[in-house]
């Protein structure tokens, strides 16, 4: 665990592209998200077993390798799906904008918010309320001791890595109707993920949740109120947090 994984943006993009392919055959977004999630999870598993596992706790090595792998994924996608942006259709039932309290919201975006909350809640319950979650946390806490009480730490971590990859892959498909699949999607997404994690704190689910909230709100309102600061606004909360609380809002380790 504690892997510095910079392929996350690429896994997101890979998921989006796989979703494109699935939907050409079976035009159902949710099915595509499921399929892409599984496929990307398998890919993540290979990545973890064949490459990251070999690097042990070598953080710098992991950063460089995952960065390299992300380039490889990006170009493989370019070769496979070409350089043009490919739209992912919005599910027909969610195509209409809805009006709430005088404001217009695209229905699909609301659906995405709901999905995000459900996934976050499910993750929280998994981690905090199940024996499996406790085993994962024990493994993060003291991997040697965890294995000495019979927890198959390495298999568990591979599974967690796959789960992370699966969420990234499925996320790519679910984000598809808003973002589309296009070369560079990875580079657009990765910074957001990193900012959220640094802001919320490494190793904290609650931190990631709060970090994502802050990032989303600051960005949206910041861009609206101070359009000239569009570039910085995203990084401002992160810089403040790093300056005053280097381990992030809820972090357990220094970022």
């Amino acid at each position: 665990m504690r892997i510095a994984n910079l392929t996350h943006g690429s896994l997101f993009m890979l998921g989006a592209y796989l979703g494109v392919t699935v939907m050409r055959q079976w035009p159902n977004l949710w099915l595509a998200a499921l399929a892409a999630g599984i496929a990307v999870a398998l890919f993540g598993g290979l990545l973890e077993r064949l490459i990251l596992r070999q690097l042990g706790g070598n953080v710098l090595g992991q950063v460089l390798v995952t960065l390299g792998v992300s380039f490889i994924i990006a170009d493989a996608c370019l070769i496979t799906w070409g350089g043009d942006p490919i739209p992912i259709p919005t599910p027909p039932a969610l195509q209409m904008p809805v009006r709430i309290a005088g404001f217009i919201f695209p229905a699909y975006r609301l659906a995405v918010v709901v999905i995000a909350v459900v996934v976050a809640l499910a993750l929280y319950l998994l981690m905090e309320r199940t024996r499996l979650g406790a085993m994962i946390r024990a493994g993060v806490d003291d991997p040697d001791m965890a294995s000495a009480v019979g927890i198959p730490v390495s298999r568990l971590f591979s599974t967690v890595f796959c789960l992370g990859a699966a969420l990234a892959g499925a996320g790519g498909v679910i984000g598809g109707p808003i973002m589309s699949a296009y070369p560079g999607l990875d580079a657009d997404m990765l910074p957001l993920a990193l900012i959220v994690v640094i802001l919320g704190g490494v190793g904290s689910l609650l931190g990631a949740f709060v970090g994502a909230f802050i990032t989303g709100f600051v960005y949206t309102f910041g861009v609206a109120l101070l359009p000239d600061l569009a570039y910085v606004i995203l990084f401002l909360p992160m810089i403040l947090v790093i300056a005053f609380r280097p381990r992030g809002l809820f972090g357990k380790f220094a970022a």
Binding site: D141, D142, A146, A148, G150
Partner: peptide, 26 residues
């Protein structure tokens, strides 16, 4: 270690090494 543990050896380690951020029950 996890295989050895499942074969039936348990360790009370020096320094105790409890999982600090898990509850007692966990």
């Amino acid at each position: 270690p996890d295989v050895i543990s499942r074969k039936g050896i348990a360790l009370v380690p020096q320094g105790r090494r409890v999982f600090a951020r898990l509850t007692v029950r966990e």
